[in-house]
């Protein structure tokens, strides 16, 4: 391999020929991620990211760069893309209006379709289809509300089940190794 074809990213050495040049375009096809091309890797997103502050391996700038380089498999299979706290700081501070928070959601959606979704989100979607909320109906909560004279909850998932089916999100299967 030509030395020029080697790009060192962090501690791993990757080869340009392994990259998927269409990956970036595939991501940007989603309207929420269309601004990615404007990213010039300034790192303002990473500088203001609370998760990066406590867990430096989560790095929005690095993820954006990896997408632009075409590191499809490395990005979509990365457990870190699920570590976003959804605070929107990256989008709030970006001088290029990239909206990395939205780009990350597009990446998560793609990863989910390819079987990398953590089971917690799949279970939550299944739950919403049952009760309409992200929790099961628990007797202690129902009782507590009665005691506190609060109105009873309907906790009915007929409509949410339909909505979830219409969106196709019910077809997403969890990652094989995910608990």
């Amino acid at each position: 391999m030509n030395e020029m074809e080697k790009i060192a990213i962090s501690k791993q050495t990757v080869s340009l020929s392994d990259f998927d040049r269409n990956f970036k375009l595939e991501v940007m096809k989603h309207p929420d991620a269309s601004g990615l091309n404007a990213c010039f890797s300034c790192g303002t997103c990473t500088a203001g990211c609370p998760i990066h502050e406590v867990f430096p391996e989560f790095d929005p700038r690095k993820l954006a760069k990896m997408v632009k380089l075409g590191m499809r498999k490395q990005v979509l299979s990365s457990p870190y893309i699920w570590y976003c706290a959804t605070c929107h700081n990256c989008e709030q501070h970006c001088p290029q209006n990239v909206k990395f928070f939205n780009v990350l959601n597009v990446l998560k959606n793609m990863a989910a379709k390819e079987g990398y979704a953590p089971s917690c989100w799949i279970k939550q979607t299944e739950q919403v289809a049952k009760t309409g909320i992200v929790f099961p109906t628990e007797e202690k909560w129902v009782k507590k509300r009665e005691e506190l004279l609060l109105p009873s909850l309907k906790l009915e998932g007929k409509n949410t089940k339909k909505i979830i089916e219409l969106s196709g999100v019910n077809k997403i299967k969890p990652e094989v190794n995910s608990e």
């Binding site: 699920w82 959601n105 989100w121 009915e156 949410t160 909505i163 979830i164 969106s167 999100v169």
Partner: peptide, 25 residues
């Protein structure tokens, strides 16, 4: 409104469209 459900924010993780549909509902 008894028919109100989850707002859809967490569904966005798996499907932006599912989240939007839940909110719109």
């Amino acid at each position: 409104i008894k028919e109100f459900t989850c707002c859809g924010i967490n569904q966005v993780n798996l499907s932006i469209e599912a989240g939007l549909l839940m909110a719109a509902m």
